[in-house]
Simulated assay, not measured.
Amino acid sequence: MLKVYFMSADSPSIMVRAAYPIYLGETLSKSEQQSIRQLLDLLPTDDINLNHKTDLSKPVLVIKDMVDGRGLACPMPLLKTKVALRSVVSGESLYVVATDPNSQADIMAFCQQSLQTKATNPLLLSINQATVSDSGELSASQSKYSVDTIYHFIITKTDSN
Results as ranks from 00 to 15, higher is better:
52 H>L: 13
122 P>R: 06
156 T>Y: 00
13 S>I: 10
44 P>G: 04
31 S>G: 05
33 Q>S: 14
44 P>N: 03
92 E>V: 04
148 D>H: 13
66 M>Q: 12
41 D>S: 15
43 L>Y: 08
7 M>N: 10
90 S>L: 02
113 Q>S: 14
98 A>W: 08
81 T>K: 07
151 Y>W: 14
135 S>F: 05
94 L>R: 01
18 A>Y: 03
33 Q>F: 02
154 I>F: 03
64 K>F: 05
139 S>E: 01
55 D>H: 12
100 D>L: 07
148 D>L: 15
97 V>Q: 04
104 Q>I: 09
112 Q>I: 03
69 G>L: 09
160 S>C: 00
46 D>M: 01
34 Q>V: 01
129 Q>N: 00
27 T>F: 01
25 G>M: 05
150 I>N: 00
69 G>T: 07
64 K>S: 13
39 L>I: 04
123 L>P: 04
10 D>E: 11
95 Y>A: 01
20 Y>Q: 03
158 T>Y: 05
8 S>P: 01
100 D>E: 10
76 M>T: 13
101 P>L: 05
33 Q>Y: 02
79 L>E: 08
119 A>F: 03
10 D>I: 02
128 N>V: 13
33 Q>L: 00
31 S>T: 13
159 D>E: 06
22 I>M: 12
19 A>K: 14
17 R>H: 15
93 S>D: 02
142 Q>M: 06
155 I>L: 10
50 L>C: 12
30 K>V: 15
108 M>D: 10
96 V>H: 00
75 P>N: 02
38 Q>M: 03
159 D>R: 07
96 V>Y: 07
43 L>D: 01
38 Q>D: 06
95 Y>I: 11
123 L>D: 06
43 L>E: 09
52 H>S: 15
55 D>K: 15
17 R>N: 13
92 E>Y: 13
22 I>N: 07
81 T>I: 03
147 V>C: 15
111 C>P: 05
10 D>K: 10
135 S>W: 05
75 P>L: 03
117 T>L: 07
155 I>Y: 13
140 A>F: 11
56 L>A: 14
67 V>E: 05
67 V>M: 07
49 N>L: 13
109 A>D: 11
124 L>F: 05
42 L>T: 09
98 A>K: 01
101 P>A: 14
86 R>I: 01
138 L>D: 08
53 K>R: 08
22 I>R: 13
13 S>L: 08
54 T>M: 09
81 T>M: 06
98 A>N: 04
104 Q>F: 10
156 T>I: 05
64 K>Y: 12
31 S>Y: 12
124 L>S: 06
21 P>Y: 07
127 I>N: 08
27 T>S: 13
156 T>A: 04
14 I>S: 00
119 A>E: 15
95 Y>G: 01
2 L>K: 11
